[in-house]
Each structure stands twice: as C-alpha cells, then as structure tokens.
Simulated assay, not measured.
Amino acid sequence: MAQKTVLITGCSSGIGLAIASKLANDDKKRFMVYATMRNLDKRRDLVDTAGSSLGKTLEIKQLDVCCEKSIRDCISSIPNRKVDILVSNAGMGMIGPIECQSLEEMKNVMDTNFFGLVRLLKEILPDMKKRKKGHIVVISSVMGIQGILFNDIYAASKFAVEGFCESLAIQAIKFKLNITLIEPGPVITEFEKKVYEEGLKVDLSAADQETRDMFTNIYLRNYKDIFVSLGQSADDVAEHTKKIITSDNPPFRHQTNTLYTPMTTLKYADPNGDLPIDTFYKMVFHHDKVFHASLNFIKLLRWRSKKSFNLGKTNNKE
C-alpha cells in the first residue's frame, strides 16, 4: 500500500487530534497526515501526542473551514495539491431552547458544520474526480439520523451533512470515489465539555418557565449521566476511523457505538416517524426511574463488552 496523503480538520483536540495521532503513528507508515486547525496557538496537545511522528508522517497546518482562502492556501501547500483521504471533522456544538439562541449563533453552527464541509469539497473534489481516486470521510453524528431534545440546531446541521453526502455519494460512484459518514454517539472530549459549559451559561429569560425547567432540571441534570453510560473515548472513534479508511470496501455509514444503535434503529422501525419521538418523550417525561435503570444497565453492558469490531477485509491485513 503506497503512502496516502490524509488531510484532517479540527485537530486541536478531541476526535481530530486522536485520528491525526493514530494515523501518523501507524506502524507501517501508510499515511502522511496533514493535521489542521483554525488556531495554531492550540497545537500543543497535538504536538505532545504526535511524539516522534511530528515532522515525519505528520505536519500541522492552519485551516479555517469557514474561510475559502484559508482552505485554498492549505491545500496549495500540500505537494501537488493531492489529497487521497479527507477527514472532515471540524465542528461546532450548541444546546438550549431556540428562543434563547440568536440567529447569528445558529448560522455560525451551520456555517462550520455544513458549509465548512462544502467549502472543503469544492476545493478537493475536482482533483479526486480527475484522478478517479479518493476517500471522503465525514465525522457526522447519530444526531444526523435522530434529533435529540435541545440539540435542534446542531442536529439540523448534521442532518444537512447527511443529506448532502447521501446525494453526493451517487455521483461519487461514477468517479470511483468513496464517501463514509462516521456517526458517533456521545464522545467524552473537550468539545462536549465546552458545549455543556456553554449550556450552563445560556440566558433562559426568553423561554417560558416550563421550558426553562425542562432544560435545566431534565436535560442538563442528565447530561453527564448519559455521557458516563454511553460515552466513547476519542481514541475509540479514531480506531474505528482507521479501520474504515484501511477497509477494501468502506461502508457509506458507520455508527461507532453499538450501545447507541438501538436508539437510532427506532427511526427505521416506523415509516411514520412517530415511534422514536414517542419513545424519547416517554423516556424523558414519564419514566425517570426506567431511564436511569436503563443507563445503569448500559454501564454493565459497556463493562462486559469487547472493544473490537469487524468491518470485513482491510488492506495489508490490518
């Protein structure tokens, strides 16, 4: 397997950092990784994690997915502007009642999570089409399949990503390109911690009392319990990502958390769409004891579960 050029966005922390480090430290040196971030002042964690791969199989570059010039300059700095694998990971979160969020804040989420991907592909896709070779890997979310309470705008941005990629995938087949949507559930990272901390600061004065209580006493109160029970590590998601890109036949969609899969399966079990909404409503508002008992059961399953997973054959018998 010839060494492949990998461009990864959002590598200052979390999933992006973990993927960059894992690929750069590949024993077989199959990847030349260009790890990018909007603010290079935040590179320290990646530098520490990369270790001896820095300057060899890993280079750190500036790239802001919200700026076309930044993307163009970064791609132009890569030899022959050739990207074999794009890992689109940069993202922005938001939680809270929509009455308490400005349209500007909502637009920022859509601009980063959705149009950021579009900008990247406008710059990278033409060369992939010309060469009829390339793999576009998008770090999406289970919230691109199933909306979650008080994640309205974030879920909307991920739904947009999923629809965009599903449409593009049809064209990609003609050019022999692969597109993969990687869909984690809760992941324990600085990203999620920041989203939670920002949620605590939301000015709820524009919302009615019932909505304020719902957000504070139900959603925020259970936020940490859900992550403890269902949350994966960034390194776990990175391992899934590596398996995907070394697979001979990578899937279009891949959920990284089997403990969360039953929840997203509800979406496909009822063509009317009522089943998942009704189920989540009852879990949240009518079955508090059952909800927490379920979380405790999931903790037990996680303790007993194996970390390995199988995606079929992989290159070089990875």
Rank of each mutant, 00 (worst) to 15 (best):
Gln3Met: 15
Val6Glu: 00
Leu7Arg: 07
Ser12His: 09
Leu17Phe: 09
Ser21Gln: 15
Lys22Gln: 11
Lys22Phe: 04
Asp27His: 00
Lys28Ile: 09
Lys29Asp: 12
Arg30Gln: 15
Met32Gln: 15
Tyr34Asn: 05
Ala35Asn: 10
Lys42Ser: 15
Asp45Cys: 08
Thr49Phe: 03
Thr57Phe: 04
Lys61Ile: 08
Lys61Asn: 13
Cys66Val: 09
Cys66Lys: 03
Cys67Arg: 03
Ser70Tyr: 05
Ser70Ile: 09
Asp73Pro: 01
Ser76Glu: 13
Val83Glu: 02
Val83Lys: 00
Asp84Trp: 04
Asn89His: 07
Ile95Glu: 00
Gly96Asp: 10
Gln101Ala: 03
Glu105Leu: 06
Met106Gln: 08
Met106Ile: 13
Met106Glu: 10
Asn108Leu: 12
Val109Phe: 00
Asn113Gln: 12
Leu117His: 09
Leu125Asn: 08
Met128Asn: 04
Arg131Asp: 07
Arg131Leu: 11
Lys132Leu: 02
Lys132Gln: 15
His135Asp: 09
Ile136Leu: 02
Val138Met: 00
Ser141Arg: 05
Ser141Trp: 12
Met143Tyr: 04
Asn151Val: 02
Tyr154Pro: 06
Ala156Met: 11
Ala156Trp: 11
Gly163Glu: 03
Cys165Val: 13
Cys165Ala: 12
Glu166Trp: 09
Ala169Lys: 06
Ala172Asn: 13
Lys176Asp: 12
Leu177His: 08
Leu177Trp: 06
Asn178Gly: 04
Leu181Pro: 07
Leu181Trp: 10
Ile182Tyr: 02
Ile182Thr: 05
Glu183Pro: 02
Pro186His: 14
Val187Pro: 04
Glu192Tyr: 09
Tyr196Phe: 14
Gly199Gln: 11
Gly199Cys: 08
Gly199Asn: 08
Asp203Met: 05
Leu204Tyr: 07
Ser205Arg: 02
Asp208Val: 15
Met214Trp: 14
Lys224Ala: 13
Phe227His: 15
Phe227Gln: 15
Val228Cys: 01
Gly231Thr: 11
Gly231Cys: 10
Gln232Asp: 12
Ser233Met: 06
Asp235Cys: 04
Asp236Trp: 06
Ile244Ser: 03
Pro250Leu: 14
Phe252Leu: 12
Leu259Ser: 04
Leu259Cys: 03
Thr264Arg: 00
Thr265Lys: 01
Leu266Tyr: 10
Lys267Gln: 15
Asp270Asn: 14
Asn272Gly: 14
Gly273Lys: 05
Gly273Asp: 12
Asp274Ala: 00
Leu275Asp: 08
Leu275Val: 10
Ile277Phe: 04
Met283Arg: 00
His286Phe: 12
Phe291Tyr: 15
Asn296Trp: 10
Arg304Gln: 03
Ser305Arg: 09
Ser305Tyr: 05
Phe309Lys: 08
Asn310Ser: 10
Lys313Asp: 10
Thr314Arg: 05
Lys317Gln: 09
